[in-house]
């Protein structure tokens, strides 16, 4: 448990750094962005909303930086992320509507990509030197393509040319959102193409990593031993794979950040109503409170996912647990 404690400490520290960066950026950048922003807003939004925005940046500039910092953190803990300038409603309300879509999309595609990549990587590593090795350069190519570009190409080919998948949005516009069967079915149908494109972009990394570990593990004596014992081929591969998968899981927490970054842009290509799409609109309209709110929420979500991956890793690798006893 000491290890989990240490990781937790790290993530709390990271969250604190992210929050502080978020606070300091607008204060340190040349040209005083906050004043410009508030000046621009006069007359556009209600005085209460301006006050909320001012508070979400830590209050007026007449106070000291430190006191502003504490006001800012206090506001955060009360859930005040400011008011979106373009949508003129609280950032937290806007995020509540779009976060579930993103978590669903990215969660499902990350899991799928990890499973497919690990299994195929294990097989590739086991059959090294065979024709299947031709997959490696192909996989490398897919890995090098930016997520959003692959998504664009898939949208063009399978969405607008072949009409195999519905495009743009997360559900049919004729349906009312809710937990009804037609709506859920439509949501799944609309998620297919984005999920496939995220999986295609991210699967190669898992595959290559697993292949390399599999080659290393296949050289170990216990693999030779399990063959000598007459275990079936499937069991031997499973034994080797179970040991080779550990580094992949250890890397899971690092990879989540990268996958999330890539997947945000896939949302944008498909007009998926998640956080990524919101982020683009916020950037284009210079909606600073919204940009910052999204950054914080994404960071916290990624940290939570990291913690989860760490727990899984601890459960799977007994060596890490003996360390805590010693």
């Amino acid at each position: 448990m000491r290890i989990i404690g240490r990781r937790l400490l790290l993530y709390v520290l990271t969250a604190w750094v992210a929050i502080s960066v978020n606070f300091l950026l607008p204060h340190l950048m040349p040209g005083n962005p906050i004043q410009t922003l508030i000046g621009k807003l006069q007359g556009q939004v209600t005085p209460q909303e301006i006050e909320a925005i001012r508070l979400s940046f830590g209050g007026g500039i007449d106070k000291g930086l430190l006191s502003q910092y504490f006001t800012y953190i206090d506001q955060l803990f009360h859930g005040n992320l400011g008011v979106s300038i373009t949508l003129s409603s609280p950032v937290s309300t806007i995020l509540k509507a779009s976060v579930p879509w993103t978590i669903g999309l990215i969660g499902v595609s990350t899991l799928l990509s990890f499973l497919i990549g690990t299994v195929s990587g294990a097989l590739l590593g086991w059959t090294r030197g065979s024709r299947l090795d031709a997959l490696i350069p192909t996989a490398t190519f897919f890995q090098a393509i930016p997520y959003f570009f692959l998504a664009t190409v898939m949208l063009l080919i399978f969405g607008s040319n072949l009409h195999w998948f519905p495009v743009l949005g997360a559900y049919s516009q004729n349906l009312h959102p809710g937990w009804t069967w037609p709506f859920v079915a439509s949501a799944f149908r609309y998620a297919e193409l984005p999920v496939v494109s995220i999986v295609l972009s991210s699967v190669a990394g898992w595959m290559l990593g697993m292949r390399n570990m599999m080659i290393t593990v296949a050289a170990e004596d216990f693999v030779l031993m399990s063959v000598a014992m007459g275990l079936s081929k499937r069991k031997v591969i499973m034994t080797a794979a179970r040991n080779a998968v550990l580094p992949s899981i250890a890397n899971l927490s690092l990879a989540i950040g990268l996958v999330v970054s890539g997947a945000l842009l896939v949302e944008l290509v498909f007009n998926y109503p998640g956080v990524g799409d919101l982020l683009l609109n916020a950037v284009q309209n210079e909606d600073y409170p919204l940009i910052q709110g999204i950054f914080l929420v994404i960071t916290l979500a990624v940290l939570a996912a990291n913690l989860l991956a760490d727990v899984v890793y601890l459960a799977l690798d007994p060596r890490t647990r003996t360390e805590t006893v010693a």
């Binding site: 990271t14 750094v17 960071t299």
Partner: peptide
């Protein structure tokens, strides 16, 4: 090590976007 772990844990692209959107 703590510093590099913190930078590893913060998702890179959103951080980049926040910094970049404040650049003149």
């Amino acid at each position: 090590s703590m510093l590099s772990n913190v930078f590893l844990a913060i998702p890179g692209l959103p951080l980049l976007i926040v910094i970049d959107s404040y650049l003149p």
